[in-house]
């Protein structure tokens, strides 16, 4: 093998990055860390959903379990499961330590 592109000389290649001991804080890392935790999801309309975050996708579509709907601080609904369409989401905030 003489193709340098296939196997770059070891002295030129950068050292491998250390394994991430702590998450860097990017949105992706935040979302990885927050799955399975209790969260508050606030919609643009001001309505809150509190529950356990089952999963989410790149559109910020969210699946919550044990969900409570809060309007002006009052519980107005409860859902075993809830799918929230991502375009309505203002923020996702952790209710417990990540």
């Amino acid at each position: 093998m003489t193709d340098a592109r296939a196997e770059p000389p070891t002295e030129v290649s950068p050292p491998p990055p250390p394994p991430p001991v702590q998450l860097t804080g990017s949105p992706t890392d935040f979302l990885k860390g927050v799955v399975g935790k209790r969260v508050k999801v606030r919609l643009v309309s001001g309505v809150d959903y509190q529950g356990v975050l089952s999963c989410l996708d790149g559109f910020m579509n969210i699946a919550l379990e044990q969900t409570e709907e809060h309007v002006n601080g009052v519980v107005t609904n409860k859902y075993g499961d809830a799918f929230i369409r991502g375009n309505n989401v203002l923020y996702i905030s952790a209710l417990e330590a990540l």
Partner: peptide, 14 residues
Amino acid sequence: MDVSGTGIQEPFDL
């Protein structure tokens, strides 16, 4: 990530 063993990997599964 399947948190509660319900077979939900992404929101649309719900």
